[in-house]
Amino acid sequence: MEGNILIVDDDDIVVKSCDSVLAPEGFTITGTTDSSKAIELIRDNDYDIVITDLNMPGIDGFELIRQINALKPSTGIVVITGFTSQQNIKDILQLGIIDYISKPFSPHTLLETILKATYLIKKIKALSTAEPDTEPDAKKKTEALNNIIDEYKSVPGSLLRVLESAQDLIGYLPPSVQRFIANGLRIPVSEVYSVVSFYPYFTMKARGKHHIRVCVGNACHAKKSGQILTRLKRNLNFNEDNITADGKFSFETVRCLGACGFAPIVEIDYDTHGAVDPDKTLDILKDYH
């Protein structure tokens, strides 16, 4: 597997042994025994995974993790630790890491964990590149989200409104945003998730620049909306998340948009197109750049 990995441990033997296990698997490995050097490396390079010890002289693992989260939040962190009591592990996991390995560990455990972590982090990165957030932009959005939460914090039953506004702001509702909202409204994350997953309007995946809704309700079905769908799929190459590779279009099917006398209906962004001739489906898209 490919992946750029940094190993930080004050014990040189650990760094070397990790290197000898992971390098033959195709990973690119950098190792250091100095945690302040590690911070520089992280600032200047893009690592998929940082493997770090917790007990280190100078900047310890906890501080390092905090710094990584601030500098490069999309880096996956795997912790090597000697403490394995329940409480300790809980504390460590709360720092926002992907996984941990307890000492002593076998080469097999190391490899398994790192493979899994790399796989995960690549998935997460793929999602976040669909939404290229520049730093100041992200800050502005956080602020806006905070404002929304403040506005509705004391209004009972306003969760749906907050989620709607948040989705409007960010485009979708990834787990991090759901957690943020739950914290802000002082309700359990599970409650936020239960609402997000229930309503079809909410999406946990990024959408394309233009979002296409094809009605497959029975009036539209009777007017061949199925063929519209087939044509879209055949010509636009959607991936498994229903987005095109260039991020321009995404689609979903909906049931009844209430304009049955004008079936079949295709909605793109906020425009309603009615009586769509399946043969001319692609023509409608021309106006969306």
Binding site: L160, R161, E164, F198, Y199, Y201, V254, C256
Partner: peptide, 13 residues
């Protein structure tokens, strides 16, 4: 006295 507000759902039949 009477006032009206618009309230939203989020899809779903």
């Amino acid at each position: 006295d009477f006032t009206i507000d618009v309230s939203f759902g989020a899809g779903t039949f």
